[in-house]
């Protein structure tokens, strides 16, 4: 095998849709890009528990509370699948957690917006999880095997997240005047940040080209964003609500919706750490990690003691012989 051209063989595999597995040769940049993307994705799942965790104790009914707990627990699980997938690329769990806590690693900016009312639980499920699902369904065909497998598992579980969100809004949309207003307000606040979840415009994204060539990404930011708008613009009619975009209009010629320009200043401001809740979110993560330190230490101490006990009883058995 002409191992002097591993990069050519690598690209041939990618082109033939052969998945890359952890021990296979890969370009260093491919490894790094995957570590960055998978760990960011994992961090997003973990930080994503915070806006919803905020409402568990105040869910309006026991049913809604049970649903919300299940959803938040799923997100923890998704974070764990993804952290393990990233670890196969040679980064440790601790390194990833440290990178998150010191602000070096990013997570989805959407979670830096506050969840102000119960209707936000609906809007997050419908719009935020809806946007995430579009992205993740495309990524199920990503070229890195462990990431693709984690995503298949995630997508299976994620569908309930979006449906419960839409249903929450549906109930509110059929409620009192105040409930209807709360529903519309939540949609208004989450709409634009949800569109921003797909990242910068293709013309300004630095990660698009290699990502597509290596099939780490399967669709561009703009393609996914358009799909999302087309989907939501129809679904909002079922709610009898509207999306807060006066430019939103069906374009018969292109067979898709035209929509207004995103506020890119706000986008970059939140990405760079100056969103409404960036500091709160990170502080909550760091606190949870530090508060849990004694549990981790105790588990290790217990395990060490038991191992020592096993060893000494082996020793005694030997002496007896």
């Amino acid at each position: 095998m002409p191992t002097q051209y591993p990069d050519i063989l690598f690209q041939q595999k990618i082109n033939k849709e052969i998945k890359i597995e952890p021990k296979d040769w890969m370009p260093e940049a491919y490894r790094k890009t995957n570590i960055r993307q998978i760990s960011q994705h994992a961090h997003s799942e973990i930080v994503g528990m915070l806006p919803e965790g905020n409402w568990i104790s105040r869910a309006p009914t026991l049913k809604r509370k049970a649903i919300l707990i299940a959803k938040v627990q799923d997100e923890a699980g998704h974070g764990l699948y993804l952290y393990s997938a990233a670890e196969t690329l040679g980064i440790t769990r601790d390194e990833m957690i440290d990178d998150l806590h010191c602000g070096k690693a990013k997570y989805s900016s959407i979670f830096n917006y506050p969840s102000l009312t119960w209707a936000d639980m609906g809007a997050i499920g419908w719009l935020v999880d809806g946007a995430a699902i579009l992205n993740q369904v495309a990524l199920c065909r990503t070229s890195y095997g462990p990431y693709a497998r984690a995503l298949v598992r995630i997508c299976k579980e994620e569908s309930f997240h979006q449906r419960q969100g839409f249903e929450t809004l549906l109930v509110l949309s059929q409620g009192t005047v105040d409930q209807k207003a709360m529903c519309q307000d939540a949609i208004n606040r989450w709409w634009w940040p949800s569109l921003m979840m797909f990242g910068p415009k293709d013309s300004e994204s630095t990660n698009n080209d290699m990502g597509i060539k290596w099939k780490i990404k399967r669709k561009t930011n703009d393609e996914l964003r358009q799909n999302f708008v087309d989907m939501a613009a129809e679904q909002v009619k079922v709610l009898g609500m509207s999306l807060p975009d006066p430019a939103l209009q069906w374009n018969e010629a292109n067979k898709k919706y035209d929509f207004g320009e995103l506020n890119w200043d706000e986008f970059w401001k939140v990405v760079k750490g100056n969103g409404p809740c960036n500091k709160q979110r990170l502080a909550a993560r760091v606190k949870a990690h530090e508060d849990g330190a004694w549990v981790r230490e105790a588990a290790v101490a217990y395990q060490r003691k038991r191992k020592a006990a096993v060893r000494s009883s082996f020793g005694e058995a030997k002496e007896a012989v």
């Binding site: 670890e87 196969t88 040679g90 980064i91 769990r93 060490r304």
Partner: peptide
Amino acid sequence: DIPGENSGGGELKGFSDP
């Protein structure tokens, strides 16, 4: 699938030194 040197504690570090 995990690089050996990263597979966590295994034989927990510091085990030999109680």
